[in-house]
Amino acid sequence: MEFQQLRMFLKAAELGSFTGAAREFGVSQPAISQQIGRLEQSLGRQLFERQGRQVALTEAGELLRRRALQIVSLVDDTARLLCDDGETGKIVVSAIPTIAPYLMPGLLEAFHEEYPRARVEVNEEVTEVILRRCALGEIDVGVLAMPASRGYLKFETLFEEELLLATSADHPLVGRDQVELDDLRDLPFVLLDEAHCLSDDIRGFCRRRLFQPVTTGRVSQLATVQQLVAQGFGISLIPQMAVPAEPTPRLRFRSLDGEKPSRTVTACWNPDRYQSRLMLSFLETLKHAPVHPSSRTT
């Protein structure tokens, strides 16, 4: 049994595919199959049920998966411990797409000034992927919006962020002195697709006011949402950090009156993995990351 075989085995188990595992390791699919076959031969047990292009763990495979996770984690954590000088090393961070482009650049700049010899790898991924990769120890820190749960992960709230109403510049609501959520009841919304938790936040807030937002389209980028709103295809609720710093001629943003929609931005990590001094320093930088102190309107 070789250590790299265990890594390949775990990746194939996670993805349910030898082809997917091969892509992750940058090797051919036959190379992965060969290594898994050697591992099965050395153990004398079949680890996967082959189901066409997909594979599923056997009972023996599930037992090995639990032990292999412990073995790989122990080896990786030992390497981190031995090399942990608090100044150098690599941190892997994942953030959801509605946070990454707005929070991470300034955060990385501040961290680099304090720790110039450290390397930070940033990934942009949806919530479920972040939770899974964090649990597997593939990332050190996740930055996402609640609610999110994975029992064995540690979560810490970073800040609460208001969601601002976004409309086109010529929308009838622009001239109103006051706008409350109930005023949006029958208006079409432009939302992100189901993979993004921001849409869940918006729908949940509307449901608490006893209505379901009427949607005119679902897209995958927050920038696209704003472009469609600017063109008059609907309205939306936009995180405050995503509001452009400079006024946008075709867009208007405003804080709602009355109960204000918001989201809770949080950090997560796996407490069972070794927390390097550098990673803890990054968390501290993250906790003090600059956010908008108050709502902006344009």
Rank of each mutant, 00 (worst) to 15 (best):
E2V: 06
A13I: 05
R23E: 12
E24M: 10
Q29L: 05
P30G: 11
L39H: 03
S42E: 09
S42R: 07
S42Y: 04
L43E: 05
Q46A: 10
Q46M: 11
F48Y: 06
F48R: 03
E49C: 11
Q51A: 15
E59K: 15
E62V: 14
L63C: 03
L64D: 03
Q70K: 15
D76R: 00
D76N: 01
D77L: 00
D77N: 03
D77V: 00
T78G: 00
A79M: 00
R80W: 03
D84N: 00
T88Y: 06
T88C: 09
S94E: 05
S94M: 06
I96A: 12
P101C: 05
L103K: 00
L108C: 13
A110L: 10
E113M: 15
Y115E: 10
V120G: 10
N123K: 12
I130T: 02
C134D: 05
L136G: 10
I139T: 01
D140R: 11
G142F: 02
M146V: 14
R150Q: 13
F159N: 11
E160I: 14
E161R: 05
E161C: 08
S168H: 07
L173C: 01
R176C: 11
E180M: 10
L192M: 08
A195G: 10
H196N: 08
C197T: 14
D201Y: 05
I202V: 14
G204D: 10
R207I: 14
L210V: 14
F211V: 10
F211N: 09
F211H: 10
Q212G: 07
P213T: 04
T216E: 09
G217A: 08
A223W: 01
L228P: 09
F233T: 13
F233I: 15
L237D: 03
I238L: 02
Q240N: 07
P244L: 11
P244Q: 14
T248S: 13
T248C: 11
R252S: 07
F253G: 01
E259M: 15
K260M: 07
C268L: 14
D272S: 12
D272I: 06
R273G: 00
Y274Q: 00
Q275V: 03
K287T: 05
K287W: 02
A289P: 03
A289K: 02
V291M: 05
H292N: 04
H292Q: 04
